[in-house]
Nucleic acid binder design. Sequence first.
DNA 1: GGTTTACACTAGCGCTTGCTTGGTTGATCT
DNA 2: AGATCAACCAAGCAAGCGCTAGTGTAAACC
Lengths: 193, 193
Amino acid sequence: MNVVNESPRRKELTRLAAHLFVQEGFDRTTVRMLAQEMGIKSGSLFHHFRDKQEILAAVIEEGTQNALTLARQALEECDDSAEARLHAMARAHLQTLLTDRNAHVVALYEWRRLDAAARDHLSHLRDAYEELWEQVIDEALAAGLIHGDRFLVSRFVMGALNWTVRWYDPEGPRKPEDLAHELVAMITPSARP
Amino acid sequence: MNVVNESPRRKELTRLAAHLFVQEGFDRTTVRMLAQEMGIKSGSLFHHFRDKQEILAAVIEEGTQNALTLARQALEECDDSAEARLHAMARAHLQTLLTDRNAHVVALYEWRRLDAAARDHLSHLRDAYEELWEQVIDEALAAGLIHGDRFLVSRFVMGALNWTVRWYDPEGPRKPEDLAHELVAMITPSARP
DNA sequence: GGTTTACACTAGCGCTTGCTTGGTTGATCT
DNA sequence: AGATCAACCAAGCAAGCGCTAGTGTAAACC
């Protein structure tokens, strides 16, 4: 078995699985469907993944890892101002949601289908990401850019952003950049004439 | 079969089903589990519901109907000011999410498991609810209470609110009233010293 | 040149699934 | 007293499920 190995083949299979999980849901996606999508027979699938659960974990890990990397990078590249950092996080978040959409939808909807071990491992990744947000929110609060309860504000913001996967249309006129700008404008009372 | 009938027994069964659907997810909840929770055998279940899908539809319809009723009532009872109406909607939304939690979690997570017919019927209910929100947001925009794009603001607000089911702890120190207040404060730039 | 390794195949086991069938019960109504 | 009817049960069917066992094969390695 190829369990630890992060072969390119496995990555490709993970990407295809994400697509099916979004379309059908994890439980409704059978190993035979997965195999067919991958162009192999169902038995061969277990050469790459120990079991079906592991495919789900791989999908979610991939997406979360990318989000974390992208957010860190965005924070390093942007200005030091609290507003710029807030903006950078929002933009990075929405860009990931766009480019890595399938993986993130799976992460949001099928999290509970993970077994205890995988959930434990992945929740650390997710927590690291959420801590980035709380840090940036803290800075914005300290700078007087926004006001309110640290915990509540960060939850509200992440809720507003994550919810976009339910309605955002990549083909539409609005770009991720626009959404990020609008969101920051909505929660910062500064921009008044 | 008791399909059209809205017997009290059926309502009680729907409530129990909602609980199981939240705990296990729709696909993982078997008709045998449902029957056991209801204290009957699996075959008897199909006396009350045509099939498993119909139980899901009943759960979601119940929750959405309640939310709509509560929101309309809240809007009738509150002050005419844009801020009061915004506040009333947020409070009503969060209260429903608290008292009818199971049904709403199911509506949010398992919507895609509905078949085409049920989804069509229920989306009208949901749209009616979302229109209430857009109306109140429009009023707040017109009153200069908030600023920005009508569509985006309402999506962001509903996202922030709906996301609460993922983290809100009814046993914790924060009341739905507090959340509503904090959210309105976050998006209205008025409350500055 | 022989052995190992990666990847795929065929075949099917044991179990669970949603749902059906045919029949029983006890209360209600006429 | 007989008929009706909602509510339930026991038994099981056909289909589909995740996963395993054993095998084949071409490339990579020593």
